[in-house]
Design a binder for these strands. Structure first.
Length: 825
RNA sequence: GCCCCUGUAGCCCAAUCGGUUAGAGGCACACGACUUAAAAUCGUGCCAGUGUGGGUUCAAGUCCCACCAGGGGUACCA
C-alpha cells in the first residue's frame, strides 16, 4: 500500500486530477454554445432535466453519462453543440417536504438545485452553464401562463365539469396519464373519482396528427415508445348508429367498430354513471332499482372496477331501443361495463361476437344471435366468435365478408340517415388543474359579472404569494384560495372585485416546452427568440428514461404542434432522435432504501472517481439495457483508466511527430479502431466504442513493451486516438493523457482523428474453401481477388479435388474474397 | 387476456450482408514474471455451440413457425 502515493509516477491519482481540471475547464468553457462568431454547424443534445429532490442518484449518473457521450462526440466531429441543463423545479415533493419540515417549498427546492448543480459540475458533463433554467422561477413560468392564454384564445384551454381522477393522498386531481393501473403515479394511492370543474387542454383535437406524425419518427425513436403512444391515442374506426327509444323523442346514438353485426344486437346498454342512464330510468318502475345499482357502482373502487374477471352486473331500465335495420325492440340495461366517457356512453350489445356482451347476456339470460358464421356456438361455449364472415341472419348482408359487410352497412345507415362512419379515440383531453401550491398559477380571473376573464398579457407573470403565510397542508382545495390578498383582484374587464383562479398547472405543462426556453432562458419579450429557434431547433438528440414514453413526450409533441399552428416554429416534432436509457438496478431489482439495495452515487464517486463511474455506466452494455450494478466493475474501469493514462506517459516521441512514418502494424490497428468507434458511436453502441479503445490500449501497450517501442510515432498516434475516444466517457483521464502527450488543453475540442482508408485495407485475407459446407482448405488471398480467379484457385487445391472425388459440383458459391462453397449433388 | 421486447461462456457483453473453427472488450478464476513477501503491474491460460423443437437455405446466433423462460406495456375503449 505504501507504494500507492502521488510520489509514484505510475500511480494515477484520480481525485487530484478532478480537482486540477475543473477550474481550468471553467476558464476555457469549451462547451459554451452561444458565441456569436461561432461558425460550426449546430447540434442540440438534450438530457431530460432532473427534478431537484435531494442529490443526484445512480440513474442520473447513467443518463447524463450517455447524453454526454453523444454531445462530446459531436463536438469532436466539429459541431457547435448545445447541451443545456436545468431543473424541473415545481411539483409535489417540494410541497410535501415543506409541509413536513414547516419550511418554504422554494427554500427546499433551491437548496436541492444547488446540491445537484455542484454534483453535476464534478460529474463533468459538457453542459453549457450559460443556459440554466429553473421552471419555478417567475421568468420561466411567466411563459407557461402566456402559453395557457394563447391556448385559451385558440379554444384549446377550457373548463368543464366531469368525473375526474382524484388522489386522496396527494389531495389533487390527476390526468389520465398519471393514473397507473388505478393507482396514483406518484404515491401509489388508489385513485377515486370526483365530480369537479377543471381546466383542460384540448389535446384530442390533435389526436390524428399526434398519431400520423409518428411515421416520421420511425427509426429515430424507440419502436416501443411509438407503440405505446399509438396505443394510448387508441384510434378506432367504426360507425355511429342512431337508435330510436320507445316513448322518447330524442334518439340515442351508439358507437361501434362492428356495424356489420347490427342484426345480431339483442339488447342495449348505457353506462350506469352517465346522465343518459338517469334520464332513461327516470319515471320508470325501475328507477329505484337503478338508483340503488348506481350507488353500488359508485362505491366500487377504481382498482376493483378495472378487474376484467369481475362478474357483469347491471339493471334493466324497463325501456326499449328500436333496432334501425329490423325494427326489433331491444331491452335497455344500465351497467358499469360500459364507460360513460368513451364513445357515446351507450352501446348496442351483440353477445355472439363480443365477449363482454356475451358475459352480460349469460349473466342475465338474454338472447344470443349469431350473425357471422363460425364453427363454434358462442351460446354453448361461452366464447364470443370473431370470424371474418360470411354473414348470416343479416338480411342483405348475408354471405358477405366482414369488410364488405361493414362498408355496405355504413352505406345503408347513411342513406337512411340512421348513422355514419365514425372514428373514436382512447385519448382524453389533458386535465391540467392541480389543487396544490407549488406550481404555475392559472392566469384566469373569475368575476361575478364578467365570468371567466383571462389575465391581460401585460400583467403576467401572476406570481405565487409568499408560502410562509399560507397553510399548505392538503385540504382538497388549492391553498392559493386562502391567500386572500393574492386572490382578491380587480376584474380586468369591469374593474369590480373578482378572484383569481386558485389552482395551479400540472407540472407537465412546464416540461412541455422547456427545450425551447434554453435558447434564451432570460428573455423577457417572449418564450424564446425565433431567430435562435431557426438556428437550433428541433432537438437533434433527446436522452431520457422510458417512464416518460407517454406523458411528457406526448404533451411536448402536442405543444410543439400548437406552436407550429401559431406560426411560432417551422417544425412539428420537437425531438428528432430519442434514446431511452435503461435503469440502474442492484441485484436484479430497482434500488430503494426500503429494499436495502440502494447504491449511493456519492460513495461510488468517492471510491472510484468520476471517470471510472462514468466508464462503468457506458461500458456496461447497450444504453437501452438496464445495468445491474452487481454485474459490473467500477474498480475494473478504474484499472483500465490508469492503464490508458500510463500509456500516455510512456510516449517519448515529440508532440509534432509525423505519424505517417510510424509502425505500420500499429497504425492499422489505430485506424481500424477509430473507424469502428465512430460507427459504434453513430449507432448508440457506446459500449462497443469503449471496447475498441481497450483493444487499442492493449495493442499499444504491446507495441511499447515488445514491439516498435515508445519512441515510434505510431505509438503517439495510438495514444492520441485513445485520449480522444476516451474523452467522450472519461474526461478527466483523457485530459491528463492529453497533457502528458504534450498538448494544450482541452482534449474536448480536439478534432476527431481522421481515418486513412488506405490503412483499413488488409493486404491479404483468409479464404475458406468448403465442400458441402465442410471446410477443406484455407487460402491466403488478396482482398481484391476476382470471383473467377478465386473459384479456379479453390478448385485447384488438392484437398478440394480429393473431397470432390470426381463428382460434378451442383453449384459453387463464391463470396470473394472470403468463402468458396462447392456443393455436390 | 391482448400487444411488444429479450434469451450467446460462471457473469456482463461482441459478432455490417445469413458466410471461416461464435469472440472484440471486460469481470471472476488459475498460472507465470517482477518482489524477501504481498499489493500494484506485465504476460499466459480458461470455459459456450447461441432457451427448446421444427422449417427455409449451399450456408442460420442472424430469416420464418411453434413452444418455454424472463422483462415491459395495456387492460371492460364496444
Amino acid at each position: 500500500m505504501t507504494e500507492n502515493t502521488a510520489a509514484d509516477p505510475n500511480f494515477y491519482d484520480v481525485h487530484t486530477a478532478q480537482e486540477k481540471w475543473l477550474p481550468i475547464w471553467d476558464e476555457l468553457a469549451p462547451f459554451r454554445s452561444g458565441r456569436p462568431d461561432d461558425t460550426r454547424p449546430t447540434k442540440y443534445v438534450l438530457d431530460m432535466f432532473p427534478y431537484p429532490s435531494g442529490d443526484l442518484h445512480m440513474g442520473h449518473a447513467e443518463a447524463y453519462a450517455l447524453g454526454d457521450v453523444i454531445a462530446r462526440y459531436w463536438v469532436h466531429k466539429g459541431f457547435n453543440v448545445m447541451h443545456p441543463i436545468g431543473w424541473d423545479a415545481f411539483g409535489l415533493p417540494a410541497e410535501n417536504a415543506a409541509i413536513k419540515r414547516g419550511e418554504n417549498p422554494q427554500t427546499w427546492t433551491y437548496e436541492n438545485i444547488a446540491v445537484q448543480k455542484s454534483s453535476m459540475r464534478r460529474y463533468a458533463c459538457s453542459f453549457d452553464w450559460d443556459r440554466v433554467l429553473n421552471t419555478c422561477d417567475p421568468e420561466y413560468y411567466h411563459w407557461n401562463q402566456w402559453f395557457f392564454l394563447k391556448m385559451y384564445e385558440r379554444g384549446l384551454a377550457y373548463r368543464k365539469d366531469s368525473a375526474v381522477n382524484w388522489c386522496p393522498s396527494c389531495q389533487t386531481v390527476l390526468a389520465n396519464e398519471q393514473v397507473v393501473a388505478g393507482l396514483c403515479e406518484r404515491c401509489d394511492s388508489q385513485v377515486t373519482k370526483k365530480k369537479l370543474n377543471q381546466w383542460y387542454f384540448k389535446i384530442t383535437d390533435y389526436a390524428d396528427r399526434l398519431l400520423d406524425d409518428m411515421k416520421g419518427l420511425e427509426g429515430n425513436w424507440p419502436e416501443k415508445v411509438l407503440l405505446m403512444q399509438r396505443n394510448w391515442i387508441g384510434r378506432s374506426q367504426g360507425a355511429e348508429v342512431s337508435f330510436d327509444i320507445e316513448g322518447r323523442d330524442e334518439p340515442v346514438t351508439v358507437y361501434t367498430t362492428r356495424p356489420d353485426t347490427l342484426f345480431g344486437a339483442t339488447f342495449f346498454v348505457v353506462a350506469a354513471d352517465s346522465d343518459l342512464a338517469a334520464q332513461l330510468a327516470a319515471g320508470t318502475e325501475s328507477e329505484a332499482a337503478f338508483k340503488e345499482y348506481l350507488e353500488t357502482v359508485k362505491s366500487i373502487s377504481e382498482m376493483d372496477r378495472l378487474a376484467t374477471d369481475r362478474p357483469k352486473s347491471g339493471v334493466f331500465l324497463n325501456r326499449y331501443a328500436i333496432n334501425p335495420v329490423n325494427g326489433e325492440k331491444l331491452p335497455i340495461w344500465a351497467s358499469d361495463y360500459v364507460l360513460a366517457d368513451y364513445g357515446t356512453g351507450a352501446i348496442m350489445a351483440v353477445p355472439a361476437h363480443d365477449q363482454r356482451d356475451l358475459d352480460f347476456a349469460k349473466a342475465f339470460s338474454l338472447p344470443i344471435r349469431v350473425v357471422v358464421a363460425s364453427d363454434t356456438d358462442p351460446a354453448e361455449t361461452g366464447v364470443a366468435t370473431a370470424d371474418d364472415g360470411p354473414h348470416v341472419n343479416s338480411g342483405s348482408l348475408d354471405g358477405l365478408g366482414k369488410a364488405e359487410a361493414i362498408a355496405k352497412m355504413i352505406g345503408i345507415l347513411e342513406s337512411d340517415k340512421r348513422g355514419k362512419s365514425a372514428t373514436n379515440y382512447r385519448l382524453r383531453d389533458w386535465l391540467i388543474s392541480r389543487q396544490r401550491f407549488w406550481g404555475t398559477p392559472i392566469p384566469i380571473i373569475h368575476c361575478a359579472s364578467c365570468g371567466e376573464v383571462p389575465v391581460p398579457l401585460e400583467q403576467l407573470p401572476v406570481t405565487l404569494p409568499d408560502a410562509s403565510t399560507l397553510d399548505l397542508s392538503p385540504k382538497g382545495t388549492s391553498p392559493l384560495g386562502a391567500a386572500d390578498e393574492w386572490a382578491s383582484v380587480e376584474c380586468p374587464k369591469c374593474h369590480g372585485m373578482a378572484r383569481r383562479d386558485a389552482d395551479t398547472m400540472d407540472t407537465f405543462v412546464d416540461s412541455s416546452w422547456y427545450y425551447m426556453r434554453y435558447l434564451n432562458p432570460h428573455l423577457t419579450t417572449g418564450p424564446f427568440d425565433p431567430e435562435q429557434a431557426k438556428k437550433w431547433l428541433p432537438v437533434d438528440q433527446y436522452v431520457g428514461g422510458v417512464t416518460h414514453a407517454i406523458l411528457h413526450l406526448l404533451y411536448s409533441r402536442f405543444f410543439t404542434k400548437v406552436m407550429y399552428d401559431m406560426g411560432m416554429v417551422d417544425f412539428q416534432e420537437p425531438f428528432t432522435r430519442l434514446l431511452n436509457q435503461g435503469m440502474v438496478v442492484m441485484d436484479g431489482s430497482a434500488m430503494s432504501k426500503s429494499r436495502g439495495n440502494l447504491v449511493k452515487l456519492s460513495d461510488e464517486l468517492n471510491d472510484h472517481g468520476v471517470d471510472a463511474v462514468r466508464l462503468t455506466m457506458v461500458f456496461a452494455g447497450p444504453p437501452e439495457d438496464d445495468i445491474d450494478w452487481s454485474d459490473v466493475s467500477p474498480s475494473g474501469s478504474k484499472k483500465f483508466l490508469a492503464r490508458a493514462w500510463r500509456l500516455a506517459g510512456d510516449v517519448t516521441s515529440a508532440p509534432d511527430a509525423d505519424f505517417a512514418t510510424g509502425d505500420l502494424a500499429l497504425r492499422k490497428i489505430t485506424h481500424r479502431v477509430v473507424a469502428d468507434a465512430e460507427l459504434a458511436l453513430d449507432t448508440y453502441r457506446f459500449n462497443v466504442s469503449v471496447a475498441r479503445a481497450m483493444e487499442l490500449v492493449n495493442a499499444t501497450r504491446k507495441a511499447i513493451d515488445s514491439g516498435c517501442g515508445p519512441a515510434d510515432p505510431a505509438v503517439r498516434e495510438a495514444a492520441v486516438a485513445v485520449a480522444i475516444i476516451l474523452s467522450n466517457v472519461a474526461p478527466y483521464t483523457a485530459e491528463e493523457m492529453w497533457e502528458r502527450l504534450g498538448y494544450e488543453p482541452t482534449v474536448a475540442l480536439a478534432p476527431w482523428p481522421v481515418v486513412d482508408p488506405k490503412l483499413l485495407v488488409e493486404d491479404e485475407v483468409e479464404c475458406v474453401v468448403q465442400v458441402n459446407g465442410k471446410i477443406k482448405e484455407r487460402l491466403t488471398v488478396s482482398p481484391s481477388i476476382s470471383k473467377e480467379d478465386l473459384q479456379a484457385l479453390a478448385l485447384a487445391q488438392s484437398s478440394v479435388t480429393e473431397a470432390i472425388a470426381g463428382a460434378t459440383p451442383k453449384v459453387i458459391v463464391v463470396r470473394e474474397p472470403k468463402l468458396v462453397n462447392i456443393v455436390l449433388g
